[in-house]
């Protein structure tokens, strides 16, 4: 009897909570935990979507395929005795993605902060301006804007017509020239600084105006105020935005896919990590390899997120600004 009532009490206490969490639990276990475990296993196999029955455990074969070229390996023998060729484009996709992330994220945040500070004044019409500046972010992730971007940066596109109008000549096709293609994508990303700007603007509004007045009475100039008041007080918001931007930018896909016409562009100059993963998984159906790539991406993002958090002790202040 006693035991029964314990069980009953347990159910009473927890039933409603778990009832409301049921959809989330189903999603979590079926669509997150199980796929993660499964893809971890797939990463050690030669799973081919077109012939799943011949799947074999190949140990770290997929990982050697990725990183082999680093050690000068162009081919090797897997644990099942099969010859496997190293992936000649993996390192390229990695370097393209790193360049893309580490150039566009800081630039985006700098622009966002600069514009947010510009708008954090007692000006009429700020809500309207804020909306206008958010338009690129609102629309920028779409296929439509990627199509437009192709058109803008073509050899005979709008950008070149404008440049020619002011006297430049012999202009390249920005998208088709491997030296510049990635930079058009960086520009496209930086252009969408709208949501970071809104977050910064909300953060700036939290900083009491008295601090600036006191600092200016003490003789601190604008630059000094920026580094001793604005940056420290905004630093938790900057940290948060930085982490989010790193995570999302590493996973960028649509723009590179559309602008490269489904491939990595000329000489794979815009072969983003996720694009390469997609090509391996869904063009060649090498889903074991694609899964291994996905896990490496997870580790890369995890490492950089952890690094940012680690260094945050040095530059993020949670104090009251005293």
């Amino acid at each position: 009897m006693y035991k029964m009532s314990g069980v009953v009490r347990f159910f009473r206490r927890n039933a409603v909570g778990y009832l409301f969490l049921t959809p989330w639990f189903l999603g979590f276990f079926i669509l997150t935990v199980y796929p993660m475990a499964y893809s971890l296993w797939l990463g050690f196999t030669n799973y081919d979507f077109t012939q799943p029955d011949s799947t074999q455990w190949i140990g770290i074969g997929n990982y050697m395929k990725m990183f082999g070229p680093l050690f000068g390996l162009s081919s090797f023998t897997t644990s099942i005795g099969e010859a496997m060729r190293a992936d000649p484009y993996y390192m390229k996709s990695l370097s393209v993605t790193f360049t893309y992330v580490f150039v566009s994220v800081p630039l985006k945040l700098i622009f966002a902060l600069a514009v947010a500070m510009l708008m954090n004044q007692k000006l009429k019409g700020v809500p309207f301006y804020r909306a206008v500046y958010y338009i690129p972010t609102l629309l920028g992730g779409s296929v439509a804007i990627a199509v437009l971007w192709r058109k803008l940066f073509e050899k005979s596109g709008l950008v070149n017509s404008l440049l020619e109008a002011v006297g430049f000549s012999d202009l390249p096709g920005w998208i088709t020239n491997p030296r510049y293609a990635l930079w058009t994508l960086v520009l496209l990303t930086v252009w969408q600084f709208g949501s970071s700007m809104i977050i910064f603007l909300a953060g700036l509004k939290q900083i009491p105006q008295d601090y600036y007045e006191a600092a200016s009475v003490d003789g601190a100039g604008k630059g000094r105020q920026f580094f001793t008041i604005t940056i420290p007080l905004l630093s938790p918001v900057i940290l948060f935005t930085l982490v989010l931007q790193i995570i999302t930018t590493f996973q960028a896909f649509t723009q590179a896919y559309i602008i490269g016409g489904g491939s990595g562009g000329v000489l794979n100059s815009t072969l983003f990590y996720t694009l390469h993963l997609y090509i391996q998984g869904w063009t060649y159906y090498e889903m074991g390899y694609a899964s291994a790539m996905a896990w490496v991406l997870l580790v890369i993002i995890g490492v950089f997120t952890a690094l940012v958090f680690r260094t945050s002790d040095l530059w993020v202040s949670y104090g009251t600004g005293e």
Partner: peptide
């Protein structure tokens, strides 16, 4: 505990589940 787990999934890159989800 489950709330913390949910917050971790917030940071998870979607691509790590995409292949098995597709197979499923």
């Amino acid at each position: 505990f489950w709330f913390a787990v949910m917050m971790v999934t917030l940071m998870l890159p979607g691509h790590v589940t995409i292949v098995p989800r597709y197979i499923l």
